[in-house]
Simulated assay, not measured.
Amino acid sequence: MTSSLPSSPAQRRIVWGVRIVLALAFGAAGAAKLAGLPQMVQVFDAIGAGQWFRYLTGLVEVGGAVLLLVPATGFLGGLLLAATMVCAVATHLVLIGGNPAPAVVLALLSAFVAWRLRPVPRAAGTTA
Rank of each mutant, 00 (worst) to 15 (best):
S3H: 08
A10M: 13
Q11P: 00
Q11H: 13
R12M: 11
I14M: 06
V15N: 12
V15A: 13
W16M: 10
G17T: 10
G17P: 13
V18Q: 08
I20N: 04
V21Y: 11
V21G: 15
L22W: 02
A25E: 09
A29T: 11
G30P: 01
A31F: 04
A31T: 14
A32C: 03
A32P: 01
A35S: 12
L37K: 09
P38Y: 06
V43P: 04
V43I: 04
V43A: 10
F44E: 01
F44N: 09
A46H: 15
A49E: 14
G50V: 01
G50R: 04
Q51P: 05
F53L: 11
F53V: 03
G58W: 10
E61P: 09
V62Q: 10
G64A: 08
G64Q: 06
V70E: 05
P71V: 01
A72L: 05
G74I: 06
G77E: 04
L80F: 09
L81A: 13
C87A: 13
V89W: 00
A90C: 06
T91R: 10
T91V: 11
V94T: 12
L95R: 06
L95E: 13
I96H: 11
I96G: 11
G98A: 02
N99M: 13
P100G: 11
P102R: 01
L108A: 07
F112G: 08
W115S: 06
L117K: 07
R118P: 13
T126P: 10
T127R: 14
T127S: 15
A128G: 09
